[in-house]
Each structure stands twice: as C-alpha cells, then as structure tokens.
Design a binder for these strands. Structure first.
Lengths: 224, 224
DNA sequence: ACAAAAGTGTTAAGAATACACCCATGT
DNA sequence: ACATGGGTGTATTCTTAACACTTTTGT
C-alpha cells in the first residue's frame, strides 16, 4: 500500500467564539479566491507535513486574522470533516477546532481577508458547509458549558453574577431564572466572592466574583 | 503555500467494542512490522487520497480483521490524533473511530495480523498510545450511553431487562440497582415489551423486550 | 427441596422550579 | 423622583436513592 500511497490534502479550520454586547459572535474572513470567492468563511488553511494541526491552526489564525494564540482562553478539537469540497481540485480532510476568547478586537484592514466577528444571529450565507460547522460547534459549546466551567473562556477573570448569567443565556439560547441561577452557580463553587463592587451605571453596584479556575474542569451538576 | 505544500500521512484507526460474557472487549491485531512489531494494536491503516476516512476504515477493518462493516451497529468518529509516532519516518495524523457490534466471531487465523477481541480489563501493553485511545473511547461510550440509546449497538434487538442492565454495568463500570434501573429504563420508553419469554436456565423466565429504535437517538434523561 | 435469576413498591431525601419585592446607585 | 439593574427566600413538585421479599423455573 505504501508504495502507491498518496495522502489527501489536510486542512484546519477554526470556529472562534466571542461575546460582543451579550451576543455570541464568530470570527469570519472573506474568501479572496475561488471557490466561494467573496463569501464569508471560517478562517482556515493547509496543514503541511511536520506541523501539528493545532500549531497550523494558530499560525493560520495569526496570519489571516491577526488573532494571537495567547488570546484564546480555550481551544479544543471539534470534529474532522472529510467530505468538504474545500478545494474543487480534490479530496480534502479538515480538522476543525473550536476556540473561546474575550475582549479581542479584530481590525478587518489587517489582511486582505478582512477578518471580523459577526453575531451568530445575523450570519449571511457562508462558504462551503461552514454554517453547519458553526451550528455543530454551538451545540457542542452549549453542552460543554452545562457540565464544565468552560464559560470562563468567554469572560474576564472577574465577573458579576449578572454578566455570568448573560453569558450562559447567550450560549444556551434561552433565559434563566435569576434566583435559581445564583443559587446553583454558587453551589457549584465555580466562583469566589471578592470584596469589590462594579459600578457601571445608574443602579446598585454588583459584587464582583473571581473564577476559581482558568482551565477546563468537569463538574457533576448541570446548568440548563 | 500550495506550490510547496506537502500533506502529512493520513491514517485511520478503529476502537471496536463488543460484549463477550458480560465484559466489554476491544478488537486488536498483532503488529506484523516495526515499530512495535509483535505488540497488540488497534486495527488501522493508511487513508489514501480519494477515499473518505470512514470508507478507508471499513476497508481496512475487513482486510485486517475480517469484520464486515454491516456488522457494525454503530460507528462514529471519536477524535483525530496528530502526535502519534505511528510511522517513525514522519508525521502522521490519525482519525479514530469508535464502533459497536455484537455476536461477532473473529478468527485470528484469517490474516497474519491475528485479530481477536480482548477484554478491556486484561489488556497487555499496547503499541503506540493505543491504550490511551481506548481509555478515551470508553469514556466517550460511557457518556454516550447515559444520554442516548447507544447501548443498542452492543445488544441484540430483543433483550431481557437483566441483559440490558448487565450491558450498562459493563460500560459504566459499576453496579446498578435493579428496581431503580427497571423503572428508569421503562420510563425512557426505549423498549417495547413483547409477549415472549426467555428461558435460559434454572430460574424464572424473563420477559423479552424489543428496542424501539436501532439508530442513535438522544434522550433528555440520564442513566448513571 | 433448593438454587438461580425474575419480578415488584414504598419511603425519605434532595433537587429543581416557580415566583415578587426591596436595595443602591446615577441622572 | 425615577429608572436601572442588584440582590434575596420559600413553598411545591419532581427526581433520585435506598432497600427485601415473592415468583417461576430446572435439576
């Protein structure tokens, strides 16, 4: 087999989520070439021999969108798609990662791909099957935040309970009851109260909490 | 980039589970070449251009172990490993699948790889990081059976409640309470009672139930 | 008769849900 | 003073967990 073996093309793609204005956004670029020239797509590219998929992903993200890997608070492999007609010339296998970040500003003019975050609720038609990939990633994220502390990836180290609740609501796609949410979150021991208060408007200041962990931990209880 | 692009080697590997004698077993082969010559390993091989990973997997399974794809009651992608030194000559990326089957007899003499099912509890040292892959697959399976009907993949269409309980126990790795188990399983509406009884020994015959679905369905309740 | 697995309910504890008002601040 | 989001408790329902004896069969 090896003598006649020729490998398919290997690519990597990234679904990078960020909360902007309490809405879940995803990082997209404009395709500069056929196929789907001019359409929006997930950032991605070729994975050459000798480079791991994660390292290729980080390199490509930086070059196409200016997003540095140290801005990603969480990155994990999502799924490998092998039926994508990414390149009309032949078979391509794409390893897709999902990443979370916060407070990242992307300047579209940085590259010809004009990277930008766009709200999930207002996406135009995307290239390839990238809409389906984003849907899948969102499903995975929603499931992930309900049995891990993954939500920290979308938030600063210090949060108010309302900020946290907004983040869960954006990911899960539905409203949560304030009192029940607080009871459960505090019971999970995810957060440590500080003595500081956030004063961000014409209302009572909110107590600030600290995430106990900034790395992925699995819990046995659920948020849904 | 494309002009100088050379793809890594792409491989596929399979973690195939089956219950034998109420124990979870995994399909292994003996490596006939270096590296790890003589050690047991997951069945796998090269994925050439033009073939999807699933189709390559099915082809390789058949050729190396004699297991036909129509014996797999469930097969799904598990994870893509890209740091495996599968081939000492260079970078290899391996897409790993997990599959479930039942009542499959493998004849080791069928190929020089001497395929066989072995109980998870008694595995020798395996080639590469295949032990870690199996651990990961088992974890995924345990999680899967607790929120889907995936357990059907390990059992015949018709089962008794005790058989079903044994299967859950083998996958989850711990005992379940008989009365609570029955209440919950029947509440899930996974099964349909028949009017037949199984008489397989010196004891009261057990009512036989039928799986309502032989395809993966997600439930909202949990077995744990 | 006995061994072996099948079958069957109740109670208690814990978890989830529904729900409405006062508090502290900025303007 | 009013608008805005922050903060708090209870009662009810539902879910889970713990637990032991009788039934039916083959030998």
């Amino acid at each position: 087999m090896e003598y006649s073996y020729e490998a398919p093309v290997l690519t990597v793609d990234a679904v990078i989520f960020q909360l902007i204005d309490h809405q879940l956004n995803v990082l997209l670029i404009k395709r500069s070439r056929e196929p789907f020239k001019g359409d929006l797509a997930l950032p991605g590219g070729y994975n050459p021999k000798g480079e791991t998929t994660l390292s290729a992903l980080e390199r490509i993200l930086l070059s196409k969108t200016g997003l540095n890997k140290n801005k990603l608070k969480l990155i994990e492999q999502l799924y490998t798609f092998d039926t994508i007609a990414r390149d009309p010339r032949g078979h391509a296998v794409s390893v897709v990662y999902m990443g979370l970040c916060r407070n990242v500003k992307i300047t579209p003019s940085i590259t010809k791909e004009q990277p930008r975050f766009m709200p999930l609720s207002k996406l135009p038609n995307l290239a390839f099957d990238h809409q389906a990939i984003i849907d899948y990633a969102l499903e995975r994220l929603a499931s992930k935040v309900s049995y891990t502390n993954a939500i920290f990836g979308l938030l600063p180290k210090e949060v108010t309970l309302t900020q946290l609740q907004r983040a869960y609501e954006a990911v899960l796609g539905h409203k949560l009851d304030k009192r029940n949410f607080r009871k459960r979150i505090l019971a999970l021991d995810l957060l440590k109260p500080t003595t500081k208060y956030s004063t961000d408007g014409a209302h009572r200041p909110a107590l600030i909490y600290l995430f106990r962990k900034q790395s992925l931990e699995t819990s046995n209880k659920l948020i849904d």
